[in-house]
Structure formats: C-alpha cells, structure tokens
Simulated scan of single mutants.
Amino acid sequence: MARPSERAAEADRADVKEDRVARFMRSALAILGETGRTDFTVLEVVERSKTSLRSFYQHFSTKDELLLALIDTIMTESTARWRTDTDTLPGPTALRALIERIAQPATSSTQDSINRGLTFYNDHLAESLPREYARVLAPLHQLIADILRRGIAEGTFRADVEVATTTVLIMQSLLGAMRLRSLGVELNGSPISAAHIYEFCVRGLRNPA
C-alpha cells in the first residue's frame, strides 16, 4: 500500500501531466481560432504553450493525437449538455433539438474558425485513427440511439427501426451535411438548415399509424 507521501507525490505528478495536456490543447485551440486551419506544426503548439518538444512527446505521439484529444474533450462536454437538454423530451422533439444544437451557427468568428478547422479534420482522423475516432464519437452515437429507442417506445417512431444502423446513418448524415453546408447555396440557392437535416433524418422514422 502506498504511503500518504507517495500518494501525494503521485497526485502532484498527475496534476502536472493534466496541466501540460490542457496547455497543449488550449494552444492548439488558440491557433485554430486564429487561422481556422489544422496544418500547424507541433513546434507551433510547443512555442505557444511555452513548453518543450520533449514535454509534448511525453504526452502525444503526433499532432493527430493532440487534435483527437481536443475533439474528444469537446465532444464529451457537448454531448453531456445535449443529453441534459433532450433527456426529458419526446423522441421526435429530442431529435430535432439535438440537430438544432449541433447545427447552430457559431456565435463568433473565433468559434467559426474552430468549427471549420475541426469539422474538416474529422475526415482525416477517420482515416488515420479510425478506432480512436470511433471512440470519440461514441457518446453522440449513444445519445442518438437512446433518442431512437425512446421514440420507438412512445410509438412515434416505427417499431421495426434497426437502431444500431439507423443511428450511424443519422449521425453521418448530420455531420456530412454540416461539412457540405456551403454546397446547398451553390446548388439550390439556399443553405442547408437544421430543419432540412431533421426532415431528412426523421422521414424514415415516423410511425404511419
């Protein structure tokens, strides 16, 4: 059994590690907010965080791992808020509310830059770190699945909906529509809205009875 002094030392080391990881993620987020791009280098992150390359590579093997950790944090925190907002709503209303929250426009130019940078980087992470990226998306996947099951139990969604597959299709439709939102203006003269995405996703779910 570890002595109190040893436990305290371990806690201090954990705090230092957590602080450095947070500094790296804050630095990456600041660069994203300024540029809207993810082609910055590890050295830029290190310089911004006022640490060292050695310290960076003690926590992350690559820049991809850093950005994955950043997206993981954002997704976990956001999904927790979305679940709080939708847990007491009927299935269709909850699905609409979730889509509206995910698709809502950025409230500042900095947030818009962060959203654009991370949204387009998702495709790269899906290819370079597919298993880890799937883990990051798991909370959102679970939330959508829970909403579908609620709608089925209420009778507002069809009883024969295959929840696992439909959940993936809805999530991919939502995230894909956000990446291609600007094409709506170019192709049909109007942007793709949350209402459009919701109607597309819910059309095959409604119980005709």
Rank of each mutant, 00 (worst) to 15 (best):
M1Y: 09
P4F: 01
E6L: 02
A8R: 14
A9N: 10
A11W: 11
D15E: 14
E18S: 13
D19E: 14
D19I: 08
R20T: 09
R20W: 11
R20H: 09
M25T: 01
A28R: 00
A30Q: 10
A30N: 12
A30M: 11
E34F: 08
T35L: 09
R37Q: 10
T38N: 09
D39M: 07
V42F: 04
L43S: 15
S55G: 11
Q58F: 12
Q58A: 14
Q58W: 12
H59R: 10
F60T: 04
T62N: 03
T62G: 05
D64T: 00
E65I: 07
L67I: 05
T73F: 02
I74S: 08
I74G: 00
E77K: 09
E77G: 06
T79F: 03
T86P: 00
T86F: 04
G91A: 03
P92G: 00
R96P: 05
I99A: 00
R101W: 07
A103E: 06
P105H: 08
T107F: 11
S109N: 14
T110S: 13
Q111C: 07
I114F: 04
R116E: 05
R116S: 07
L118S: 04
Y121K: 02
D123Q: 14
H124Y: 10
L125R: 08
L125F: 00
L125C: 08
R135I: 11
V136G: 05
P139M: 05
I144P: 02
I152E: 01
T156V: 14
T156G: 01
R158I: 07
D160Q: 09
D160V: 03
V161G: 08
E162K: 13
A164K: 12
V168W: 04
L169W: 07
M171C: 02
Q172G: 05
Q172I: 00
R179Q: 13
L180V: 01
S182G: 15
L183Y: 10
G184C: 03
V185H: 08
E186D: 14
I192R: 00
S193V: 03
A194R: 04
A195P: 03
H196F: 09
H196G: 12
Y198R: 07
F200P: 00
F200A: 14
C201I: 06
V202A: 14
R203F: 14
R203W: 11
R203Y: 15
G204L: 03
G204C: 03
N207H: 10
N207K: 06
A209D: 15
A209Y: 11
A209I: 13
